[in-house]
Write a protein that binds this DNA or RNA. Structure first.
Lengths: 227, 227
DNA sequence: GGAACACTTCGGTTTCTGCCGAAGCATTCA
DNA sequence: TGAATGCTTCGGCAGAAACCGAAGTGTTCC
């Protein structure tokens, strides 16, 4: 008998295997059509349609109509954060029986989260920026210092548009550390892909770095203690 | 059709209104008996017992047997984090219809989260410590600098025990900012209560500061820009 | 216009699970 | 030892919802 927002409604929505599959498929930030999501969840189109309608109604997803397709994506960064937190929980629960497989190694190293970079490489970038004073704690979140602006301009990351909530922190479920999200995190991911330092693995959230790409990334985001 | 940890299982568990009520009741970090939790959820004892058994089995809760009572508490900080993330989601969903009531003002100002302090006051303490260089980004999380150790000793916060993951960051669902968790966050909360700067409001997570207590807190954790 | 396609809505079946009454353990107190 | 208390287990019921077949809406292509 308590007031306040009702967790159980959202949680129950995520609590259906079909819907959970769809949400996880969208966690990399891309927009997928209803048909693709139905295939992902392993249900028929009409079942998926019902699920999607409910998730849009609840504010978990947003829709973009394009011709005879309807593309769905996660509505807000909060949704991605909640999913990440639940992933960490489920992971912790499963960790008792099985050891993390070799397939997960690539996921731990680098993957896309919502629309930014996550994993070891993302945490490295975050720590490097913090250490070098390129991002600083501001009144409402993190802010990019002047030197930081210069550094990102040098890397070819465009940071136009509203610069108010330029960068945010996001908890990393494999590293249990913070990494960058927000426009800055998004710009970082697109930069890495544009430069060919890494490419998305089809059908998964893995972001696979090339050997030279990883070296370039490490050089761009040095940490004290590096060789 | 995907591998990886199964979110839906945990989410479905949290997705039942009764279980969600119990979990939220435990979010302040205290241990409650099965009977108290049954009352909280508004169900009979035998129903609650089933719910609790399932949540323990899933690793959401842990039990401590004491005489003929069984006390339940959240198993890990990850559970509290996931609940906070879901709270943020549910809050965002509800924000469309109703405006946040006056009762919520106290919650926003200060409340207990798991076993540490959250809300505006907690964010202030975190920012102050960051600004003054008393906590620094370390290899695996945050670390307390030597000056930080001295400062906390001066405040009477005991920091014995394993000092490895001394402080962690935790996302604040009302402020959307980081605040302290971990031993340091716990110590902060107990210090505030011990000194009589604030007291827990019975039956809620609100931590109510006294007028002098708030002034003392603000003095102990100054921010540039203060009067 | 008609066919193909992407998706939604409707209706009915089936499965799941939350719920409580009753009975069963375990612990404490007299 | 017996009664009271706190909690768990069992069994059956009732409501919810996930699912798919079939039919309907809107868009594109020929």
């Amino acid at each position: 008998m308590r007031n306040g927002p009702d967790i159980s409604e959202v949680a129950a929505l995520i609590g259906d295997p079909g819907r959970a599959h769809m949400l996880l498929a969208l966690l990399d930030g891309r927009a997928l059509s209803a048909g693709e999501l139905a295939g992902e969840a392993g249900v028929t189109l009409q079942t998926a349609s019902g699920h999607l309608a409910r998730m849009v109604e609840a504010g978990l997803l947003c829709v973009e109509k394009q011709g005879r397709h309807r593309y769905f994506r996660l509505a807000t960064a909060e949704v991605a954060e909640a999913l990440s937190a639940l992933l960490a929980l489920a992971d912790q629960g499963a960790r008792r029986r099985v050891r993390t497989g070799p397939r997960d190694a690539a996921m731990r190293k680098a993957r896309s989260c919502y629309n930014h970079l996550a994993g070891e490489m993302a945490v490295r970038a975050y720590d490097s920026l913090r250490q070098r004073g390129l991002i600083v704690v501001a009144q409402d979140g993190l802010d990019l210092s002047d030197a930081g602006h210069a550094a990102f301009a040098g890397l070819g990351v465009a940071l136009t548009g509203s610069r108010k909530p330029l960068c945010r922190e996001c908890l990393d479920w494999s590293e249990r550390r913070m990494h960058l999200s927000g426009p800055l995190g998004t710009g970082l991911l697109t930069m890495v892909l544009d430069r060919g330092w890494a490419r998305r693995e089809t059908g998964s959230r893995v972001v696979a770095f090339t050997q030279t790409g990883e070296a370039a990334f490490r050089k761009a985001f040095p940490l004290t203690g590096d060789v």
